[in-house]
Nucleic acid binder design. Structure first.
Lengths: 136, 136
DNA sequence: ATACGTGCAAAGGTTTTGCGGTTCC
DNA sequence: GGAACCGCAAAACCTTTGCACGTAT
């Protein structure tokens, strides 16, 4: 039922998808662009923007807005959570087991769910330990 | 432990907070600005940006990034979910009962949580019904 | 009186887009 | 060969910021 978003296969798009799938750091477009240029020096930032948007529309990557300053992308599309560390700024994947129960609640209220995002704002494990040491 | 963010009380900030608290539509800055100008015609958009940012830093409103194009604000700061309707663009509040269990999982893994956001992407009740009628 | 907040406008940063050239099919 | 896609640069947007003036305390 999903229309064909990509009419042709291109090297650029493959490189972009590869980069996002092979990192755990939830890169923004600039990060992807920098890495892509090492493989393909003439790629343009516009191409990265265009393709990453298409890839997320196609459901092949996840577009994250957890960092309110910039969109980040995630190559794992299964339902999982993210935590933004308010100390170091890192975005960490969080595996969650009981999201489907939450979704069940919502569906019973008459909504249709295509995708669920769970975001936590706080401290990652490293920064949480540091905080304990210099605690106040 | 929270430092004083506001050194003075201003009319502008009160109007802004009032607007966000008295709507369920999760307005963006432009929406707030338009409404504020009806009460206070000389208010500037910069003031809205400055104050809404301060209010969210103070924890008095929630800054939502569910609509990836623009930041929206929510006057309800208790933990609850949101659904972005991919058909009509509306953002709906979703009351959720079991978020604390999710948070428990995450805390046990060594993270500290200050805030939790649950977002659903799909169809609101109205659009879901329509979809059924013209179903394919 | 004084320093905090506002209004205005310019600047900053991210993302989109128009266009001519290139490439995939 | 022709449509789809790219590279480049400009434009569009959202948001922040500097500065002079106004205002709450």
């Amino acid at each position: 039922m999903k229309e064909a978003i990509f009419k042709r296969k291109t090297n650029q798009r493959e490189v972009i998808l590869d980069i996002v799938r092979n990192t755990k750091c939830h890169p923004c477009v600039d990060n992807i662009y920098d890495e892509a240029r090492e493989i393909m020096p003439r790629i343009s930032k516009g191409t990265v923007y265009r393709n990453i948007k298409l890839l997320s529309q196609a459901g092949m990557v996840l577009e994250l807005s957890i960092d309110h300053n910039v969109l980040r992308y995630d190559g794992s599309t299964h339902t999982h959570g993210h935590l933004l560390c308010e100390n170091c700024g890192a975005v960490t994947d969080i595996e969650l087991t009981s999201v489907s129960e939450l979704e069940q609640q919502v569906k019973q209220q008459g909504y249709k769910i295509n995708n669920t995002i769970v975001e936590f704002y706080g401290l990652c494990t490293k920064c949480n330990i540091k905080k304990d040491n210099h605690s106040n």
